[in-house]
């Protein structure tokens, strides 16, 4: 019974990670690719962790699984967040209908203001 459950969990997780990899290839720009990798990748690895915990079955394996899931839940979004910020600052323009971030970074200190600066905001880049 537990063998079948863990097999199904592992299968679902592996398929999600495959979807993340396909999304990485198919999505049109860096930010949409990152969305695919961050979401599908996180849930995929969580399901695989759960499958491993159930297969091994011992208390320490379950505790390891819990620890690992918390770790993935916290770190994957943080990595995506940092990389997204770095990519935006390094000048990769997003493929978007409307960009609230445009012109809000201070060019040299990289401070980010919450409101539009005194200069008029850039016009919408509709595509």
């Amino acid at each position: 019974m537990s063998e079948i459950v863990s097999g199904l969990l592992a299968l679902a997780g592996a398929l999600l990670m495959l979807i993340a990899a396909i999304g990485l290839l198919r999505m049109p720009d860096f930010y949409t690719r990152m969305q695919a990798a961050a979401k599908a990748g996180t849930l995929g690895i969580l399901l695989i962790v759960a499958a491993t915990g159930i297969t091994l079955g011992s208390v320490s394996a379950l505790l390891h699984a819990l620890l690992a899931s918390l770790f993935f839940l916290l770190t994957t979004p943080v990595a995506a967040h940092l990389l997204g910020r770095a990519a935006y600052l390094s000048g990769i323009r997003p493929w978007v209908l409307h960009d609230d971030l445009a012109g809000r970074y201070h060019p040299s200190t990289h401070e980010l203001s919450g409101e539009p600066s005194a200069a008029p905001p850039e016009p919408d880049v509709s595509q």
Partner: peptide
């Protein structure tokens, strides 16, 4: 970041 269709990019300095 983990909920549908959204990804947090940055927080303003303030």
């Amino acid at each position: 970041t983990l909920t549908p269709g959204t990804l947090s990019l940055d927080v303003s300095t303030d």
